[in-house]
Simulated assay, not measured.
Amino acid sequence: MHPFASNLSGNHALVTGGSKGIGRLIVQALLAEGVNVSYCARSPRGDEFSAFNGATDGARAVASAVDIANPSDIKNWVEKSAREFGKIDCVVANASPLFHDVTPEHWEKSFRADIMGLVTLLDATEPHLKERAEAGGSPSVVVITSIAGYELILPMIGSPYTSFTRTKAVIAKDYARKFAPMGIRINTLPLGMVNTPNITHPDGSVEWSSFQTFKKDNSEWMKEAEAKIPLKRVAEADEVANVVVFLASRLSSYICGATIPVDGSISAALL
């Protein structure tokens, strides 16, 4: 029986969309567990975690500029990251460009980024994850998505975001059939509303998060929305990150192919 500790120190994780928002808190949570992190974004600053003092056991974060709609970008990033740290133990597919307009252009862009980007990432990391499983590890993939793909709560009818957030969970379940016999676990986290904090950069400048900006401009709507959540509040980003750490660790060694809502029970309330 494993002690109730992550025991992730020395592992290496990939996190897409790790420079801000939920991805940023996921990177910090992994660093705090002693995990080296390769994170990507379309235009990372590179110093996102230079002032973060919570890393343990010498864990470090390395940034790369990656367009998740570009297969070559993803493949090159995966191989470069594997060379940097010698292995890949965990993959967190977090990035989503949020193409939600009801237009053919957004459907095509969302398909290339959200769907083919995820498939490319899974295929590119598979041999590295398989190698870790054969070496006795417990490699894990976590796919971040939204309950918008389940409850159809977005106001835009016909939005690619609604359809493709659900599709990513279907892809993860299908890959579970392929990955599980190799010893690789893959699970999906559909999220409800998540409070992402503003970012204070090393130079002192403050970058407002999309959530904080929306909340400031739509305070009454936010109060009504929070009242509908059974827990009566939105999630904090580190609460999502904690679930990712759990799924990355051996504490979740028999969880594979699961869809685990992190939504304060709003999806149950909407049934």
Score class of each variant (00 low, 15 high):
F164Y: 15
E207D: 09
W208D: 11
M116G: 00
E220K: 13
M182C: 04
S209N: 08
K75F: 00
V240D: 04
F52I: 04
V35S: 09
K178A: 09
S6R: 09
L251T: 03
R45G: 14
V27F: 03
W107F: 13
L270D: 01
N7V: 00
S249H: 09
A225D: 09
P261T: 07
L270S: 11
G149F: 05
A248H: 10
I153S: 15
V102D: 14
M222P: 01
L14P: 02
D57A: 15
F164P: 01
I115G: 04
E236K: 14
D47Q: 11
E33R: 13
G183N: 10
S210E: 13
V170L: 13
N7E: 13
S19Y: 01
A269G: 05
F4C: 04
D238C: 02
V92Q: 12
R42D: 00
M156T: 06
G149V: 05
S209H: 10
A5Q: 14
A133V: 03
T188F: 06
G117L: 05
F214Q: 07
F164L: 14
V91K: 13
P190W: 12
P127D: 07
N53H: 07
P197C: 07
F49M: 06
K173D: 02
D47W: 04
V234I: 12
D217Q: 15
I115W: 07
H201C: 02
D174V: 08
F85P: 03
K80Q: 14
A176M: 04
K228C: 00
M156H: 12
A93Q: 11
A5Y: 09
S9T: 13
T165Y: 01
G23H: 09
L251P: 01
Y150P: 00
P127F: 07
P71C: 08
E224H: 12
K216F: 01
K178E: 05
E224F: 02
